[in-house]
């Protein structure tokens, strides 16, 4: 389902149908997802439609940029690193592109969103929450609903750390996809029992994957590393 298309577009998969057709001199974009229908007119002649997974923080409306993934409690040895695999929720973005400009046309999802508070009410942040099992190899999941995150956890502290959550700033999320899998590669560096830093790497979990168009693009400044400091605990 993911990929680039001409304006003559008809996709039906699972509970999703996307259709772009010419009516009354306009192109009409029609999307139905789990019974929810959206229609928009497109005034354009030469353009393309791109459908790909996007940062899962847009639905039902954008209130945050943070994503929290909760998983089974895991103890990490001092001065060690471990690669684990988690799932993350998928939101599907539809983009319209013409004359070197790309704009979001629609975002929808088969996964019901849920939000949480990471940290205390006064200083914490609202985050989209997702609960995931923990895997040692990339799991096989439905790419329309779930993506696979490769998370490299490194414990830089001299003491054991117990982790059961990772919070990410979704701006700068680098999502890749192919026919079978949607992927993200992230890092989590533990500074002690209660603090960590997370960020995303700009590479897929395997070769041959296509990079998604991002809804939120950050300018990449080489000297600056983007990420989020988890001050309110990792377990």
């Amino acid at each position: 389902m993911y990929g680039d298309y001409d304006y003559d577009l008809h996709i039906t998969k699972d509970e999703i149908s996307i259709d772009v057709s010419d009516s009354r001199g306009f192109l009409t974009y029609t999307r139905v997802c789990q019974g929810n229908k959206l229609e928009k007119n497109i005034a354009s002649e030469y353009g393309r439609i791109a459908v790909n997974p996007v940062e899962p923080v847009n639905l039902p409306q954008k209130i945050t940029t943070f994503l929290e993934i909760r998983f089974d409690k895991t103890m990490i040895e001092p001065y060690s690193s471990k690669v684990i695999y988690l799932t993350f929720p998928i939101e599907i973005g539809v983009f319209v592109a013409a004359r070197k400009d790309v704009e979001v046309l629609d975002v929808f999802s088969l996964k019901a969103p849920k939000y949480t508070l990471y940290g205390p009410p006064a200083e914490g942040v609202i985050a989209r929450i997702h609960r995931s099992p923990i895997y040692s190899v990339p799991p096989s999941v439905d790419p329309l609903r779930l993506g696979v995150m490769e998370l490299a956890v490194r414990n830089d502290a001299a003491e054991w750390a117990e982790i059961s959550r990772a919070v990410f700033e979704s701006h700068g999320m680098k999502i890749y996809y192919d026919r079978e899998i949607v992927s993200l590669v992230a890092r989590m560096r533990l500074h002690g029992r209660h603090g960590a830093e997370t960020d995303f790497l700009n590479r897929p979990v395997r070769s041959g994957m296509v990079k998604s168009i991002e809804v939120y693009r950050k300018r990449d400044i080489p000297a600056m590393r983007r990420g989020y400091a988890m001050e309110w605990g990792v377990d």
Partner: peptide, 11 residues
């Protein structure tokens, strides 16, 4: 409450 997206999971 569980089904409502903005009824927070935590607290």
């Amino acid at each position: 409450i569980r089904a409502h997206p903005f009824a927070l999971d935590t607290p």
